[in-house]
């Protein structure tokens, strides 16, 4: 196991290098000269040259790349171009709100979608199954934007059940007051595709031969579903869950934007708005690292729950 983990960590290096290369090409080459943005209103040639020197843009491209690599390795991305705050500070303060929304949403969504999908798979082919599948298809066709706009308008503005937007410093206030509406809307968006996916996982398992053997042994359909099928279907469910964990860091971009939640997603959007390259780069690197680590974690968990898997 240890050898496997080491080998995977070793394999992450080229991938991380590739991400850095990609970002470098995007921001230092394609992105062009950001000095005009930073110069603001007074862009004399002197100011521009000054800025370029500060950012290290007067050096050659390979040199700039080395600086970038150094930044990544020390996890010090300098300061934000728009707020002059150290990037690390900015990110540190944003991760909390993102998780405050994303974690509860993930848990509730997982619980609901797995239960509904299991029920629907159990009665597959029946009217209930078809109605639920139809509702899911219809629900998926409406853009997340519409749900959020309409939800915010009706539930918060018109009916006043929830605050329209906002965030506080206290975790309790956030969870009680500010999280419910975005959580609800996020659920509405994510439940439908999840139910469909999990349902298909369950149904596929039910078509395997060992289910036939279980019936031939005289087990009831409930026991077959809850014990035999679930245990096997857990594998793709857990795998898919682990794959979606890195998205927690990004936060629910749209929700954060609409509800004024100062999380990572909102930060990214602001950074792109203001062409704040250091922040964008930093967030991308962090998320890429998180994704790679979670993939490794997913494979290890996979090994724990599926006895057939042999890690090589």
């Amino acid at each position: 196991m240890l050898a496997y983990i080491l080998r995977r960590l070793w394999q992450m290096v080229p991938t991380l290098f590739g991400v850095m290369l990609l970002l470098f090409i995007l921001f230092n080459w394609v992105g062009g000269d950001p000095s005009y943005i930073l110069a603001g209103k007074s862009f004399s040639a002197e100011t521009l040259a000054n800025i370029r020197h500060q950012l290290g843009l007067d050096k050659s491209l390979p040199e700039q790349f080395l600086i970038f690599v150094q930044q990544v390795l020390t996890l010090d991305f300098g300061t934000s171009w728009s707020t002059q705050q150290p990037v690390a500070d900015i990110l540190g303060s944003r991760i909390g709100p993102s998780l405050t929304l994303a974690l509860p949403m993930l848990l509730v969504s997982l619980l609901l979608s797995v239960i509904i999908a299991a029920i629907v798979a159990y009665v597959r082919g029946s009217l209930t199954d078809r109605i639920v599948t139809l509702i899911c298809t219809l629900a998926m066709s409406v853009s997340a934007l519409v749900y959020i706009i309409a939800g915010q308008y009706w539930l918060a503005h018109k009916l006043g059940w929830f605050p329209i937007l906002g965030w506080s410093d206290s975790l309790a206030t956030n969870l009680w007051l500010y999280v419910p509406l975005p959580l609800l809307l996020g659920l509405v968006v994510s439940l439908a595709p999840d139910i469909r996916f999990y349902r298909s996982c369950f149904v596929e398992e039910m078509n395997h031969d060992y289910v036939r053997t279980a019936r031939a042994k005289g087990l009831s359909e409930q026991v077959i579903m809850l014990k035999h099928v679930m245990r096997n279907a857990l594998i793709p469910v857990v795998t898919s869950l682990m794959m979606s964990l890195p998205y927690l860091f990004l936060g629910a971009l749209l929700l954060e934007r609409f509800f004024g939640i100062p999380g990572m997603g909102n930060e990214v959007l602001n950074a792109v708005d203001r062409s704040d390259f250091p922040v964008i780069k930093a967030i991308t690197i962090y998320v890429a690292l998180a994704t790679m680590l979670f993939n490794l974690l997913a494979d290890i968990v996979y090994k724990l729950i599926d006895p057939r898997v042999q890690l090589k």
Partner: peptide
Amino acid sequence: MWFYSVFTSVPDMLLLLAFSAVM
């Protein structure tokens, strides 16, 4: 596969935004 792993280690939305930021 290296190419693929680079592109998939960044979530879609983030990659889209990163591209949009420079183009």
